[in-house]
Design a protein around this nucleic acid. Sequence first.
DNA 1: TTCGATGGTAAGTAAGCACTTACTTTCATT
DNA 2: AATGAAAGTAAGTGCTTACTTACCATCGAA
Lengths: 237, 237
Amino acid sequence: MEPQKRINANGSAARMAGGERRLQILRVAMRLFSQRGFRGTTTKEIALAAGVSEAMVFRHFATKEELYSAILDHKACLHDDLDPLQKVADAIQRKDDRAVFEGIALDALNHHESDPEFQRLLLHSALEEHELAHMFWEKFVRRVYHSLRTYIRQRQRDGAMKQLDPLVVVRAFIGMIIHHSLNNNLWDRDRELLKISNQAAARAFTNILLNGVAAKPQARRNGSARSATLKRKPSKK
Amino acid sequence: MEPQKRINANGSAARMAGGERRLQILRVAMRLFSQRGFRGTTTKEIALAAGVSEAMVFRHFATKEELYSAILDHKACLHDDLDPLQKVADAIQRKDDRAVFEGIALDALNHHESDPEFQRLLLHSALEEHELAHMFWEKFVRRVYHSLRTYIRQRQRDGAMKQLDPLVVVRAFIGMIIHHSLNNNLWDRDRELLKISNQAAARAFTNILLNGVAAKPQARRNGSARSATLKRKPSKK
DNA sequence: TTCGATGGTAAGTAAGCACTTACTTTCATT
DNA sequence: AATGAAAGTAAGTGCTTACTTACCATCGAA
């Protein structure tokens, strides 16, 4: 007679292959950590949610810390190859500012929307000063800042953008995007205060930024009163 | 003979008056909670840091939860009367966009810089879905959004700003500010990536925003091309 | 059919947690 | 000087935590 495969709370058949189970525990833990933080989640809860005994958790991951690290590695490798500047590489080539910035914004917004766990995990580990935060900063944030600074500098040399500190421009732009995602994922999940599609948001932020940093029409009649704002070197051509 | 007043680790004389001790414990707890989160801080640590026994903590606050609530009340009442729009009330009256936005930005940046605990506390409670987050949202964020929206709408009717969704403009601006503070307090405390004074940051963000949302020169070709940057109202007297 | 490797569990253990109890010390009043 | 209330503590209590041990179940291959 068939030994009647037991079914656990998740509807997943008992007795998985090792690798499968490991991944399942990892995913469950990821969800719980992102919801309640590292310290706020117990190994018992993780085991329960995965439909196994606590001992199984410790068979796959020696310590809770190691489980956390495994999550970080997992997330990191998912979000790793993804250089956000790559997707807009040809827009950069074409010097199509709008495509560059809107592309980056839309990509980030979509990303945050489809994987809100990641942002929460990141915040938790930044607050707890865990290594993911540092890793993310080094591997991702720095690169974005650097690439965008390079692009902005180029456009400033082209005379297409004002001579502001490019890093400040980057921060302003990234700020709009991240803060919007943070609002959507953390504070105002029902979009009670502001409901707007990612497309529309990306377009609006890009508009504000590009108009904000665009070189002035440079009305030749320069009663150059406001050299304060536009530091344009005369670029004597 | 003098009974040699004991001195605890903090250098504070033992045996404080009740109210004093309460406040001291509160402050110590505030610091620790903001550093390690609610769940990440033990009552023992709090007691130790305050230089008293654990029992004293529980004499002043019945439970750890109550201690947390007391902190929230404390912080809330500190940051409460402070309607950030009040400081720029006359700038609003004068419709001096630059003063309005730069004032708000500078105020927020200074605030976050002088009290980074608050931002951390707020983030922790947002992640843990504690009430402070909700309270802050209702009492503060909503009001700022509402007031700024009203102002922006007015300026749009004046023909001084583009017809964008005012809430998106608010989000973009607040985003630059909050994200910059978050970077300074959480991610890049050494300002390794971007070191800039609050004044300069407030000015830069304001410039980007105001140029970004300024009504177009409107191709009416009336010479006065950049009403955008210099908002001196024509003052048709 | 047997057997070893692997998936899985029940029932621990020691340490740490929020919180309590029973007691002592200090000190401003009369 | 006596006293009573408030400031303070040492040593718990029972529960939860991360992690372990000792054992059972299932399965594919020899």
